[in-house]
Design a binder for these strands. Structure first.
Length: 889
RNA sequence: GGGAGUUUAGCUCAGUUGGUAGAGCGCUACCCUUACAAGGUAGAUGCCGGGGGUUCGAGCCCCUCAACUCCCACCA
């Protein structure tokens, strides 16, 4: 039976393969965990992207590195789980929907009941929330989609409640007045991280305060005169001689005529402003701290929408910005405002709403993280969890060693509602994992649940556990919690070491008494080619979909992998992706080369003794590359792994091994032919396996053409392993010399413009007899690769041909005798240039040898090398000089 | 203000413990050589940010200056 071979196109077309193979893997259930030969498990949990999100370059890097590891470990025989998920992303999602509702219906969320509005968000989530999952699939992510978890799913919700209630009952969650970043637009507290500080042109207003029982006045400088209604002290530095005598007296706040103490506090900077600070504990973070130190009363002067409340007197109802103008005008009229100086200063703005953030007092829920952070520090100190690269430990430590209690309540609707209940009759307060209907104390039915929801990171922090079923015993069994927890590695960007990594560590150590993952690989932030952060406003974002469309997923993945090492940034230039697209195509064409010969040999190497020199060489090189790739994946050096395999495929297999095989495949001897085809196939199949974790699609495609009938898909083949019996040092050394000489001949040909088609005669002169016979045995290969007609190889004591062009390597002189006119001046110039370069090297080397201290202090191997170099360079100079004089005569 | 990082070829980046600087892209010349023009062959290109120091020897270690980036803090 003959199998009709369809002619393959000369370029690889990614689109056809990608959807085909992804579907095949999925329907074949290859992404599901299966027990492998190692009996070990390997689990990576995808950092859950926001439901609002589209895949960006950073996600693409996430997926590429994670999926590469998963595929690598799957092939190594681990039971692997790549667990996908989505984050409800409280503020972000709610504001997207709020914005949409406003555009469509001109209504705010306050025009709906909580239930109504949440329904709208859920509907939106169902419709748009899965885009990113499709994009992850397009990237080739080999996730078990049956594990897909959303942070608001029942089990994560159960986890959140259990953790909250446990901590509540241990008094580690408490409620407290706190100064928070209040976003007047969202009407919610936002975390520090959600506040963007922008430089704003403001002014210092210098105000004159009267002092009780004295004619003296005090000059206070402020950027926010409207907050004076909330002032409860004036502070000076205890060491400030100017004001020492005033400490303990009372100042009188203008307009509201409140008497406040003049206190001494270290925080006050003698240089800044006037050295006198008005203290507004209700509306300034530092003042809040000062207030705590001095037990000052706190006055809240703002409504939730950012307007002044009744404390604002006649300015009540005005926004802070408005009030600032009006108040300063009034103060000016009263001659209290004595000076206004322009002043640039940073002002916090809501990252999402864009409005000015008002520090404000409100009742919030907190987690006491003192103990938990301590154990999180210890776990990393003990190497229970290791950071790659290690330097990131410092970032982790610096936050956890000086932790601030974590404000977890958010005044939103979209999220996990705080499981705390209040009795409206007896005012009892309690936390419960179930939905309560009556007061646990007085049995009253009029109770209500805390309306706030939890910070998104509260549920994200439990993610490694809740995705595997915790705390539901049945789910934990079904999801194989025991097998996959702790996870093998967490891969993420350094920007969320504080927010996320630290919290997962704390929450896992608290609930499971063990770390959530063994390794943390912190990858680079993807930037544009100028090193700028990709952002919507700059319009410099690279849309992974465009890249996939343009170059194919494999090329995109390879580009990202080749940039993923221990660096902090990847400046992604689409042109680079184009370069790797060419590499993918090269692989395709390497296959096209061997395709016609597939039937004439198996991919098995049965007898090592039958291997010829070049076969031993390529197997040895393959072996080196295999070892390197295995090592690199283990330590997250995707860049080195990519470079190694790139160079092997391109510079070894394609450039030399395929070229050296052409003769044999054209030859008559079918045994030799079959032998060579076997090695070509064997190595190519290994190449596909080596590359599969990085570029899964083309490798699976070509594997399907090459595999034996009884072999499974590549995705579950064994990953190549280093094999000591495939090391052939001598063949590697000789082959390197052969390559050098061929290159040298080609160099000569190019320098005298010999047409690529034309043949030349070549004479080689070398020292060692071994080398001479090696070259003699390679006649046919010189003919093939350097278009050599007749080859003479002899020792260096023989006479050189007279009319010829020469070139040399460290071990061999290359002569190309030429009939007819030779451009002597060109040749002389080339040799002189070479001589000049050699002389410089020689002099440098000589300087070392003549340096007594060098000979005294340098280690023997270095001195030995230097002496060897001297001999080599001397010989080279001699050859050059001899030949130059000959050419010149 | 505190901390961290970066500075190497035109561009984007590697460079293990100090021992004569590398890759990809781009560029130049010549080639449609029967796997591949998304290709082949050959080639050019570096005061390794400046200055100082340690060392026989520094891209690498120390000090210092400069530029840029990021994180934290910051509304007197």
């Amino acid at each position: 039976m003959t199998i009709e071979q369809t002619e393959l196109p000369t370029t690889y077309s990614p689109k056809d393969c990608e959807s085909k193979w992804y579907a095949a893997w999925e329907s074949g259930k290859y992404f599901k965990p299966r027990k492998g030969k190692t009996n070990k498990a390997y689990c990576i949990i995808v950092p859950p992207p926001n439901v609002t999100g589209r895949l960006h370059a950073g996600h693409a890097l996430d997926v590429t590195t994670q999926d590469a590891l998963i595929r690598f470990k799957r092939m190594k025989g681990y039971e692997t789980l790549f667990l996908p998920g989505l984050d409800h992303a409280g503020i972000s999602t709610q504001s997207v929907v709020e914005k949409m509702v406003w555009e469509q219906e001109k209504k705010t969320r306050r025009d709906f009941t909580r239930e109504e509005f949440l329904k709208k968000i859920w509907a939106w989530k169902e419709e748009y929330g899965n885009t990113i999952l499709d994009q992850q699939k397009a990237m080739g992510a080999s996730c078990d989609w049956d594990y897909l978890t959303f942070t608001l799913d029942p089990i994560p919700n159960q986890a959140v409640k259990k953790f909250f209630v446990d901590l509540y009952n241990q008094k580690l969650i408490y409620q407290s007045d706190y100064i928070v970043n209040w976003d007047p637009a969202l009407q919610s507290a936002v975390s520090d991280a959600e506040v963007e500080h922008k430089e704003v042109q403001g002014a210092f207003y210098h105000l004159k305060y009267r002092i009780k029982g004295s004619e003296e006045t005090l000059e206070v400088a402020t950027t926010r005169p409207e907050t004076l209604f909330g002032d409860t002290a004036v502070a000076v530095n205890p060491n400030d001689e100017r004001f020492k005598h005033l400490i303990g007296k009372h100042a009188i706040i203008p307009l509201c005529n409140r008497e406040v103490p003049i206190i001494a506090d270290e925080h006050v900077d003698l240089e800044k402003g006037t050295g006198c600070l008005k203290v507004t504990p209700g509306h300034d973070f530092n003042d809040f701290e000062i207030g705590k130190r001095h037990q000052l009363p706190i006055i809240n002067i703002l409504n939730k929408d950012g307007t002044l409340n009744e404390h604002g007197m006649e300015f009540q109802g005005q926004s802070a910005k408005e009030a600032r103008k009006k108040v300063s005008k009034k103060l000016e009229e009263l001659e209290i405002l004595i000076d206004t100086k322009p002043h640039k200063h940073p002002v916090g703005h809501g990252e999402r709403s864009g409005v000015v953030i008002e520090p404000m007092i409100s009742k919030q829920w907190f987690v006491d993280v003192k103990e938990m952070s301590k154990s999180a520090v210890e776990a990393v100190e003990k190497d229970d969890t290791k950071f790659y690269p290690k330097e990131w430990e410092n970032t982790y430590f610096s936050w956890l060693r000086d932790p601030k209690d974590w404000c977890i309540s958010r005044q939103l609707w979209w999220g996990h509602q705080i499981p705390v209940f209040y009795c409206d009759s007896c005012h009892h307060q309690w936390a419960s994992e179930s939905l309560e209907t009556e007061c646990s104390k007085c049995k009253s039915k009029t109770i209500h649940q805390d309306p706030d929801v939890l910070d998104t990171w509260f549920s994200s922090g439990l993610w490694p556990m809740s995705t595997l079923g915790w705390p539901n015993a049945e789910a934990m069994k079904e999801k194989k919690f025991e097998t996959f927890f702790p996870n093998s590695v967490l891969i993420t960007g350094f920007d969320i070491i504080f927010f996320w990594v630290a919290r997962m560590m704390m929450m896992s150590l608290k609930t499971q008494k063990q770390v959530p993952f063994k390794d943390v690989y912190i990858h680079a932030i993807v930037r544009d080619k100028l090193g700028r952060k990709m952002s919507k406003s700059l319009g410099n974002g690279i849309d992974p979909f465009d890249m996939i469309e343009q170059y194919g997923t494999d090329a995109f993945r390879f580009s990202l992998a080749s940039g993923a090492g221990y660096n902090r940034g990847i400046n992604l230039d689409p042109e680079r992706i184009g370069g790797y697209r060419n590499f993918i195509n090269k692989i395709w064409n390497a296959y096209r080369f061997i395709q016609p010969h597939l039937d004439s040999g198996s991919a098995k190497i049965s007898d090592l003794s039958k291997l010829d020199h070049h076969e031993r060489w390529i197997l040895s090189e393959l072996n080196t590359t295999t070892k390197l790739m295995n090592d690199c994946f283990e330590i997250y050096r995707f860049d080195d792994a990519s470079a190694a395999v790139y160079s092997f495929v391109y510079d070894k297999y394609c450039s030399w091994f395929i070229e050296l095989s052409k003769n044999i495949l054209k030859g008559e001897n079918s045994d030799i032919r079959a032998q060579r085809v076997s090695v070509l196939k064997f190595v190519f199949k290994k190449i596909l396996a080596l590359l599969h974790p990085i570029i899964p699609f083309i490798t699976e495609e070509l594997w399907s053409h090459l595999k034996d009938a009884n072999e499974e898909l590549l995705i579950v083949q064994d990953y190549p392993e280093y094999d000591a019996i495939l090391e052939f040092h001598k063949d590697q050394e000789e082959m390197n010399k052969f390559i050098e000489v061929v290159t040298s001949i080609r160099n000569v040909r190019a320098s005298v413009n010999i047409k690529p088609k034309d043949e030349v005669n070549v004479e080689l002169f070398c020292d060692s007899h071994e080398l001479i016979s090696y070259f003699r045995n390679n006649l046919i290969n010189f003919q093939e690769l350097a278009r050599v007609k007749n080859l003479k190889v002899g020792s260096k004591d023989l006479n050189r041909p007279s009319k010829s062009v020469m070139n040399l390597t460290s071990h061999t002189e290359v002569f190309v005798p030429l009939e007819g006119v030779i451009d002597l001046s060109e040749q002389i110039a080339r040799l002189e240039k070479e001589l000049a370069k050699t002389t410089i090297d020689f002099n440098k080397n000589e300087a070392k040898i003549n340096n007594e201290n060098f000979m005294k202090n340098a280690p023997e191997n270095i001195r030995e090398e230097t002496r060897r170099t001297k001999i080599e360079l001397t010989e080279k100079m001699n050859s050059l000089n001899e030949n130059l004089t000959q050419f010149k005569s």
